[in-house]
Design a protein around this nucleic acid. Sequence first.
DNA 1: AGACAGGGGAGTG
DNA 2: CACTCCCCTGTC
Length: 279
Amino acid sequence: MSSRLRIHPFSLKESLECGQFFRFTEVDGTYIVQSSGRIFSLWQKGDDLFYEGVDESFLVHFFRLDESLADVFKEIDRDPIVHEAIRQYRGLRLIRQDPWECLVSYLCSSAKSIPHIRCMVEILCKTSGRKVSLGNYIGYEFPEPACIVPSHHLDAVGAGFRAPYLVQAGQCIDRDQLTALKSLPYQEAKRELMKLAGVGKKVADCTLLYSLDFLEAFPMDTWIKKGLWHSYFKGRRMGEKELEEFVSDHFGPLAGYAQLYLFHTWRHHPMMARPPRQG
DNA sequence: AGACAGGGGAGTG
DNA sequence: CACTCCCCTGTC
């Protein structure tokens, strides 16, 4: 029934649960994942990843297994902070999401916690997406752009001021246009995404990094900012512009991977226990 | 009760 | 460029 793939280093749990991706559920160590119209299950024992309902080539694409983490580390391991993050979370990998699903997820994200984003996306799929199943599990596919329309279904998502962003995104862009952004230079692709209502720098960078292969994108949220101030600037509250310059100079073309590791570290760091406000 | 949030947008200096 | 207020909802 199930197939097996040997991967090292790799942590299924960290990669799925770190907050980059929202469409999974976990039961007793087995994860059911939905992405790009697929539904499949996964579990890991040591360096063995077991899977059902999907083929190997999709998993290689999804978890970016064709790219060498060792090479990534060589590039971003440039200081003791990120070095320690890599040491601690060695198997954490960037996930290559579906661009449309990724954009919508991050349109929902503003001022919301990770569990809440997951919940909103789940309701959106449940009310507007097609029903699918995997064994006994019933899931719902992600709605296509044209399927997100003002309705009581959408109201049920509880998206509030974000709801019009979702509808407009569906009207203004389709899957092909999103994918086509891959061929643009980073800054231009970002500018294009930011033309959409509800898409600022942060949401644009998340979409670019998590689904469109722009590994230089470094999503700058308030947690990352606070972490950078604390760990790299002795608590000095640098402006966002200065932080952006620092990040691209310091971490280089794979800065997005550094962001993934730093975010994960700082999320679990006592220093970050209480959200920002003052420095 | 009331403040506040892992962000965006419009407006201000 | 930096800062402020509001946006809808849920939570502390």
